[in-house]
C-alpha cells in the first residue's frame, strides 16, 4: 500500500473538479458551505478581504480554528501556509488537513524559494499568473494549480488575465515544433520536461482551478468557460449579504457553466455581492498576486 504518491495527490485534485472550494472562518460557515454543495472548504482565520483591510503579517490560521472546522464537515479540508514556510506546512499536515495552499494571500516567509512540496504526503495547490509560474510550482510538487487573481477584491479582472495567459501560452506551445521547445522552456523559466508535456497534451499536467476575485455565479461560469476546471471562492460568499443563497448559486453555475438559462435563473435576487475594489486604486506594494517567484 503506497500512500502520499503523486497519483494519489493529483487524484484528489481530480475529484474536486467541477466544484467550488469555499473560504470559511468558523464551523458554522463550513456547514453552510457543505450544505450548499461545496466540494471542499478552506479553513482560515480571516478571509482575504479582511487580511487586505487589516494589513500586517498574515500567517497560517490558529490550529484551534482549523480543528473546529475539521470536526464540523465531512468534505475535504484545505488550509493556507505562507510561501516558503515549510514548517507551517508540516504543522498543517500533522493536523490532518487534506490539501495545503501555499498562498500569496499570506505574507511570504521566503522571497526566493517556495516549499519543496515533494517532501510532503499532503498535496499542495499553488497560485500562478502565467504558465511559467504554474510549471515551476508543478516541478516543486504542486498537485494542483489555480490562478492568483487578486484575492479579496471581488474583482474578476486579474483572474481572467491569469487564466488567459496560461491558456494562450499552452495553445502556443502545442502548435510549436519540437526544436522550438528548449528556447520556450528557457523563456518561461520552466523545465523542458514539463514544457514538452504541455506540447504533447495541450494542457497542464495537473488540475487547474480559478481563484482570486470570484464574487458572482457569472464570474464562476466565466472562469469555467475560459478553461478553469473548478473555482475557489474566498471573500465572495461570506462577505455577501446572503451567503447561503449565493453559495448555492455559485455551485450551480459552476456545474452548469455552459447553460445561460440556469446562470440567469440562479443569479436572481441574490442580494448585494461583496463590495469590489478597482485594482488600479490599490498601491503596487499592496497587490498580492506579484508575491511568488
Amino acid at each position: 500500500m503506497d500512500k502520499g504518491t503523486w497519483t494519489v495527490k493529483c487524484g484528489l485534485a481530480q475529484m474536486l473538479k467541477g466544484g467550488v472550494i469555499m473560504d470559511v472562518v468558523t464551523s458554522e460557515q463550513a456547514k453552510i458551505a457543505e450544505e450548499a454543495g461545496a466540494c471542499a472548504v478552506m479553513a482560515l482565520e480571516r478571509v482575504p478581504a479582511d487580511i487586505r483591510a487589516d494589513g500586517g503579517v498574515a500567517r497560517m490560521a490558529d490550529p484551534t480554528v482549523i480543528e473546529a472546522i475539521k470536526e464540523a464537515v465531512s468534505i475535504p479540508l484545505m488550509a493556507k501556509c505562507r510561501i516558503g514556510h515549510f514548517v507551517e506546512a508540516q504543522a498543517l499536515e500533522a493536523l490532518g488537513v487534506d490539501f495545503l495552499d501555499e498562498s500569496e494571500v499570506l505574507t511570504p516567509a521566503d522571497e526566493s524559494h517556495h516549499i519543496w512540496k515533494h517532501d510532503f504526503k499532503v498535496p499542495f495547490v499553488c497560485g500562478c499568473r502565467d504558465l511559467g509560474e504554474a510549471l515551476r510550482r508543478i516541478a516543486e510538487g504542486a498537485a494542483m494549480i489555480r490562478t492568483k487573481g487578486e484575492a479579496g477584491t471581488g474583482n474578476i479582472v486579474e483572474a481572467v488575465r491569469h487564466m488567459r495567459a496560461v491558456m494562450d501560452e499552452m495553445r502556443k506551445i502545442k502548435s510549436m515544433t519540437t526544436d522550438e521547445l528548449t528556447a520556450e522552456a528557457k523563456a518561461l523559466g520552466a523545465s523542458l520536461e514539463l514544457v514538452t508535456e504541455v506540447h504533447e497534451t495541450g494542457k497542464l499536467p495537473v488540475v487547474n482551478f480559478a481563484a482570486g476575485g470570484i464574487a458572482t455565479p457569472a464570474d464562476a461560469a466565466l472562469m469555467m468557460q475560459l478553461g478553469a476546471e473548478g473555482v475557489f471562492v474566498g471573500s465572495g460568499i461570506f462577505k455577501a449579504s446572503d451567503p447561503e443563497q449565493r453559495a448555492r448559486a455559485i455551485v450551480k453555475a459552476t456545474t452548469h457553466y455552459r447553460d445561460p438559462e440556469i446562470i440567469a435563473e440562479v443569479s436572481k435576487g441574490l442580494g448585494a455581492a461583496m463590495p469590489g475594489i478597482d485594482i488600479k486604486t490599490i498601491p503596487q506594494d499592496e497587490l498580492l498576486a506579484p508575491r511568488g517567484w
Binding site: 500512500k3 494519489v8 487524484g11
Partner: peptide, 24 residues
C-alpha cells in the same frame, strides 16, 4: 487524504493480473 493509497487488488471476475487500484 494523507491515508489515501494505491495498491494491487485481486478481482476474480476480470482475472489476472491484479488491478492497480487508486483509493482517494
Amino acid at each position: 487524504q494523507v491515508e489515501s493509497f494505491e495498491t494491487e487488488v485481486e478481482i476474480p471476475v476480470i482475472g489476472e493480473p491484479p488491478f492497480h487500484a487508486v483509493f482517494i
